[in-house]
Amino acid sequence: MAIDPSTELMLRVRDGDAQAFEQLVALWQDRLVTLFLHHTGDHATAEDLAQEVFLRVYRARTTYKPTAKFTTWVHTIANHAASDLKRRAYRRRERGMPMTASASSSAMGLEQIAIAASGVLPSRLADRTELQATVQQALLTLNDRQRMAVLLAKFEQCSYEEIAAAMGITVPAVKSLLFRARDQLREALQPYVERGESS
């Protein structure tokens, strides 16, 4: 049975091949930073989290078994790393401390995002940077699990089964997360989505 390149590299890492680890980092760094960037809304945090994932991969290398794809394994580690970060942020908020960029963006109401995305300023919406910011903010209004499911689907092209394995939930739960995320994002991005349909 053919194995995917990342799994093959990870097996070499497990066996002590340092060059394979370097290749694995080169192969995955940008993917993980992208995933975490849209999960947290902050580039520096995203790079820290990606680094944390590689550290965990390295530490767990001897226990790696190719029964699951490396992709699923690393997505699981990424999900745990993001959850750990959130737990720490939650404890800060619990004490009424200032929120991180991600948390404060999440606090932005749907109403505000809908205004930002409204057709009142169509020329501004044409600006890709602003569009990115609007979509990013809308994404940050989702809860963590919804957002992770959406990002794994969109940026990592994961199937329901792969998302379920990475997040430790069932396939119906993944479907439910994605449907609720779609409805929430659709509400926030209604003007943009309508414009896209009409053009």
Binding site: V135, A149, A153, K154, F155, S159, R186
Partner: peptide
């Protein structure tokens, strides 16, 4: 998942990749 996300799938294309 792409079908589940429907029209939102395309909107997410605007997000940058690292």
């Amino acid at each position: 998942p792409a079908t589940a996300l429907g029209d939102i799938w395309e909107a997410l294309d605007s997000l940058p990749r690292s």
